[in-house]
Deep mutational scan, measured.
Amino acid sequence: QKPIVRVFLPNKQRTVVPARCGVTVRDSLKKALMMRGLIPECCAVYRIQDGEKKPIGWDTDISWLTGEELHVEVLE
Rank of each mutant, 00 (worst) to 15 (best):
Q1Y: 13
Q1T: 14
Q1I: 15
K2H: 05
P3W: 03
I4P: 03
I4N: 03
I4C: 02
I4Q: 02
I4A: 02
V5R: 00
R6Y: 03
R6D: 03
R6A: 05
R6S: 05
R6H: 04
R6T: 06
V7Q: 00
V7H: 00
V7C: 08
V7L: 02
F8S: 11
F8W: 09
F8A: 12
L9T: 01
P10A: 02
P10K: 00
P10T: 01
N11R: 06
N11W: 05
N11H: 12
N11Q: 11
N11P: 02
K12P: 00
Q13V: 04
Q13N: 08
Q13G: 06
Q13Y: 05
Q13T: 05
Q13I: 05
R14V: 11
T15K: 03
T15L: 05
V16Y: 09
V16D: 13
V16P: 01
V17K: 01
V17I: 08
V17T: 03
V17Y: 01
V17C: 06
P18W: 13
P18A: 13
P18R: 13
P18H: 15
P18S: 12
P18M: 10
P18Q: 13
A19K: 06
A19C: 07
A19Q: 02
A19Y: 02
R20Y: 10
R20T: 13
C21K: 15
G22I: 01
T24G: 04
T24P: 06
T24D: 05
V25L: 13
V25C: 06
R26I: 13
R26L: 15
D27Y: 03
L29G: 00
L29N: 00
L29Y: 00
L29C: 06
K30R: 09
K31E: 08
K31M: 03
A32R: 12
A32V: 10
A32Y: 04
L33Q: 02
L33K: 02
M34R: 15
M34A: 13
M35L: 14
M35I: 12
R36G: 11
R36Y: 09
R36S: 07
R36M: 05
R36A: 09
G37L: 03
G37C: 06
L38C: 06
L38R: 03
I39Q: 15
I39F: 11
I39W: 06
I39E: 15
I39V: 09
I39S: 13
P40V: 14
P40L: 15
P40M: 15
E41W: 03
E41T: 10
E41I: 03
E41H: 12
C42W: 03
A44W: 06
V45K: 00
V45E: 00
V45D: 00
Y46V: 09
Y46K: 10
R47S: 12
R47L: 07
R47V: 09
R47G: 12
R47E: 08
R47I: 05
I48K: 14
I48Y: 14
I48H: 11
I48S: 09
Q49R: 11
D50K: 14
D50M: 10
G51C: 08
G51Q: 11
E52D: 11
E52A: 11
K53A: 07
K53G: 04
K53W: 08
K53P: 07
K54T: 09
K54A: 07
K54C: 12
P55S: 12
P55G: 03
I56F: 04
I56S: 02
I56T: 10
W58Q: 05
W58F: 11
W58V: 03
D59M: 07
D59E: 12
D59P: 03
T60G: 11
T60I: 14
T60Y: 10
D61E: 08
D61W: 04
I62G: 03
I62M: 09
I62D: 01
I62N: 02
I62V: 11
I62Y: 01
I62E: 01
S63G: 11
S63F: 11
S63A: 06
W64L: 11
W64S: 14
W64R: 13
L65V: 12
L65S: 10
G67C: 06
G67A: 06
G67E: 08
E68W: 09
E68M: 10
E68A: 12
E69D: 08
E69W: 04
L70T: 04
L70A: 13
L70S: 01
L70I: 07
H71I: 10
H71V: 10
V72H: 00
V72L: 05
V72F: 01
V72K: 00
V72Q: 00
V72N: 00
V72I: 06
V72Y: 00
E73N: 02
E73G: 06
E73S: 07
E73K: 02
V74R: 13
L75Q: 13
E76Y: 02
E76H: 10
E76C: 05
